[in-house]
Design a protein around this nucleic acid. Structure first.
Lengths: 202, 202
DNA sequence: CGTTCGTTTGAGAAACCTCAAGGTCTGTGG
DNA sequence: CCACAGACCTTGAGGTTTCTCAAACGAACG
């Protein structure tokens, strides 16, 4: 129904049956983000974003009403710029939460850590704090543990692993990326879900 | 800055410093949902929803601009009904994803399963499919595994645990809740995050 | 009647947690 | 400047949860 990476997608309202939205991992594993049941709106972000960051698949036989994409965008075009900006912010926000969810569901502790720190680095770079080599980071290992669903003790060991692997160092409130490309590959980080530069407007 | 359960909250745009949004578990554990850095919008759902479903806390010293809540809602009030409805749907969607995130981050496999099935039950009940005693469910154990970040093998054992505990049975495409209250307590399910009955409008 | 999909069970391995104890750094009051 | 407290980081040993691999079983379907 909706496929990750494609553009020009459609939105639906589900009338009958079940569907699910999910993301695929490079190794073929899958993380289901949500199940959709009758009455649910489906594929909203695929219309608002230029390219979709997730896929949707039917589970049972399905009946759904197509929501014409241009109608949606027209409706929004007439709305205030404020409304559009807010919806866009909300969507970006949700995209980050979804990526975080995938992180917890389908990655090892080491990969999660790498992914989180790469995401923070990428976001900080966008606003001019930090660069490819690293960034200042006020988080404690307790914060990282609470974010990644780990214990602080294990966070410590994970950071040691990454350091010993030569991937990154987190010391003295500073994250230093030693090998960006390898870390990116290791943690399955793909910046696309952040890379939507502004509302899709007409 | 923002506290779960309160109403009349404020939104901010972060100018300087770091913050994080999180949910607390009954046992005092915490799941951080996202970190906010300069430039980020913060507390949007706390304005759109009557009561907020998460909390926000400063990590460093912070400078932020207050976004006046009434301005936001005015801006929306002038927008089309369509725009408002869409934003509301997006927010509810995000609330579900956030709860799913907490599920993966801070609950055991058994608790996750209970929580997921209770959520599905609650949502199905809202649209008239299924009731407190259970619901028809077309999902396979593979679907559940992909949703909960487990292996299909372990899903099977989890379902057996829950059955042997007398909490629920999932057999022949039917979920039967044997002891709703006990299951709810066991899996930390709190329906509030679904219970926002329509956009907050003027 | 064979094939496919989904479920069930077992045994051993890996990841992560718990508990416990030191160690380091930083700010604070004397 | 020193002593101290508190917050944070680091390491070890042993336990629990979850995974991997493997195999068998049942039901649906052509």
């Amino acid at each position: 129904m909706v496929t990750e990476g494609q553009s020009d997608q459609t939105a639906f309202i589900l009338a009958e049956g079940w569907a699910c939205s999910y993301k695929m991992m490079p190794d073929g594993e899958r993380q289901i983000v949500n199940f959709q049941i009758p009455g649910d709106f489906l594929g909203l972000r695929s219309v608002l974003f230029r390219t979709c960051d997730h896929s949707i698949q039917a589970i049972t036989h399905i009946e759904a009403s197509v929501v014409v994409s241009s109608d949606l965008l027209d409706g929004f075009g007439q709305s205030s710029r404020l409304a559009t900006a807010i919806l866009w912010a909300a969507s970006r926000d949700e995209a980050m939460v979804v990526e975080h969810l995938v992180n917890l569901g389908r990655r090892s502790a080491d990969e999660r850590m790498g992914h989180l720190l790469l995401e923070l680095g990428a976001r900080l770079k966008l606003v001019g704090l930090g660069d490819k080599s690293g960034f200042d980071c006020p988080l404690t290992q307790y914060h990282l543990a609470d974010a990644l669903g780990l214990t602080p003790v294990h966070v410590n060991r994970v950071l040691r692993n990454l350091r010993e692997e030569g991937l990154l160092t987190f010391q003295k409130r500073r994250v230093t990326i030693h090998d960006f490309e390898r870390l990116k590959a290791f943690s399955g980080f793909d910046i696309d879900y952040l890379d939507h530069d502004g509302p899709l407007l007409r």
